[in-house]
Simulated assay, not measured.
Amino acid sequence: MKTKKIVLTGGPGSGKTTLIKFLEKEGYKVMHEISRDVTLEAQRQGIAQLFLENPILFSEMLLEGRLKQFQEGCSINSPIVFYDRGMPDVTAYMDFVKVHYPINFSEICNKNRYDHVFVLPPWKDIYEQDNERYESFEQAEKLFHFLKEGYLKYGYTPHEVPVGSLEERAEFILSQF
């Protein structure tokens, strides 16, 4: 059985992680977002916002972690694995902050392919800033467009998930394949 690798992406505060947790509770295999872990580890080492202070190092760590998740997902015996963000998110964020990244970032994204990409639009009613989410809602809206364009750049066709209840969003995604 070939496992379908499904990415959920979108700007900060769009409901991705809540939706991933809902899908997991419904019995689906998931790979959780790792950027908060990377950020918290850097903060323990005295770096307040690693992405802002050293975007290349932060992005290398994220890309390495997401590649590892991708490889783990390939070996899971399940019809579907959902990923809370994918490897192309890394280059999209770098494009957003206008930082040049090594060519191997794009090579990794091109070589390791997901089956479907779903992008969640900005949703002001649920958006919250916190210790790891430093972007404003306006920045989240811009990031949404960079993420969508970032996946298009790698030949994906991102499907936009309508705003709605967790059940409605999950149903929309599951009805696409």
Rank of each mutant, 00 (worst) to 15 (best):
S78D: 14
N112M: 06
H100C: 13
G164S: 03
F70R: 10
P79I: 03
S78A: 15
Y93C: 11
F82P: 10
F96G: 03
I80P: 07
N77C: 07
V161G: 02
L152V: 12
E135K: 10
V97M: 09
L143V: 15
E141F: 00
L166W: 13
Y114T: 05
Y93H: 14
Y114L: 04
F144A: 06
S75C: 10
V117C: 02
P88S: 02
T157P: 01
D130C: 08
A92N: 06
E167V: 08
G73A: 06
E167P: 07
E128L: 07
V97D: 04
Q139K: 15
V97R: 03
Y154Q: 02
F144K: 14
S78L: 10
Y83V: 04
L120C: 07
D89E: 12
F105Q: 06
G73L: 05
K142H: 02
Y83W: 03
Q139A: 14
P122E: 14
F172N: 06
Y101N: 07
I173N: 10
F70S: 09
L174D: 13
I80N: 05
S136W: 01
V161F: 00
F172G: 04
Q71W: 00
K142I: 09
R133N: 12
Y93G: 13
Y154H: 13
M94Y: 00
L120W: 09
Y93E: 14
H116M: 11
S165Y: 13
G86W: 01
Q71G: 00
D130S: 09
Q71N: 11
F146C: 13
P88V: 09
N131W: 01
N110D: 11
N131F: 11
R133K: 13
V90L: 03
E72Q: 11
R85Y: 03
H159I: 06
F105K: 07
I173R: 12
F146W: 08
Y134E: 14
Y156L: 10
I103T: 14
L166S: 07
Q71I: 09
P122S: 15
A92Q: 04
G155C: 04
V117D: 03
F118Y: 12
K124S: 15
S106T: 06
N77P: 00
P158H: 01
G86Y: 03
C74Y: 01
D125E: 15
D125H: 12
E138N: 13
E141Q: 15
I173S: 07
F146T: 13
L174Y: 10
E72N: 09
F96Y: 14
V163G: 01
Q176C: 05
R133C: 07
Q139D: 14
D115S: 12
D130Y: 02
V99C: 11
Y127M: 04
L174V: 00
G155L: 05
S175L: 00
Q176G: 01
I108L: 11
D115W: 06
I103S: 14
S175G: 02
S106G: 06
